[in-house]
Amino acid sequence: MANFSSDPSFPPPRRLKPWKAVERGLAKVGISGKALVLIAPVLWLLVFFLIPLALVFGISLATKQFGRPPYSPLLTTEDGTVQLTLHLSNYIKLFSDNLYVAAYLSSIRIAFISTVITLIVGYPMAYAIARAPDPWRNVLLMLVVLPFFTSFLLRIYALTGFMRGNGLINQFLGLFGIEPLVMMQTDFAVYVGLIYSYLPFMILPLYTTLVKLDVALIEASADLGSRPWQTFMSITLPLSLPGIIAGSLLVFIPAVGEYVIPALLGGPETLMIGRVLWDEFFGATNWPRASAVAVAMLAVVVVPIMLLQKAQNAMVEK
């Protein structure tokens, strides 16, 4: 084969290569491509994610005071000595005041129950989508994602139109002469709101595992004598476990810290920790107390968050 570049009578045209120049220039200063890619996201996350979390921990150990900022400084310099003052009062209050303990427990309970119901509602939907014939599958999947792109807040608002005293459900019941039900400002409404909002988060990871499930496995199980229900329990369910875990955590974690849903749909007695944090911050302007509540909330979700990352990694690898 002819090699033009090595042919002396055929010199290659000299062209400026801007990319090469940039790379060489950077290499001279000692910056590799790798470092260049990493530096921006690492710095950003350090400053705007890690340090803020550290601040939450720090300020949870301060006390409220009047002024700007509205909390006591942790470090004070007095006569040349640096003094570190840590207050545990916020945490003591958190554990001793029934309000906080109740909010904490009821958040976990509400989040857990709605996660289970969302799973029960979402699983058959995800399964139906995964088994739908080809053109339908994408349409249905789109229908799951679509509400996510309309405003979350507006969808919650839409629910109130259904559940309020003169809302659609009660109007419908009224046709049969049934007394209007009180749904708004109850825990029931909060459950409905959580399930409604987080259903797509449950369906998507479930769908991802279920669509990858080889139909031949289901057939093999039937071939070996399993009735449909037995096949579901012994093959489908265990093999979709990563999706169940990921979906459940994706619902549970934000549900624990949810503010908007209990604020709009719940009653005054619906205690949720996200709402408590909000009220401490905006109502009582007690920033240290709010920070302590955030730390307590973090303690609930940190294990689920780590589990979620593991489950997601497992799903990506498979």
Partner: peptide, 13 residues
């Protein structure tokens, strides 16, 4: 996955 209230509070701080 961080609850919004925590992200919001930490950013503000």
């Amino acid at each position: 996955v961080m609850p919004d209230v925590i992200t919001g509070l930490s950013m503000l701080l």
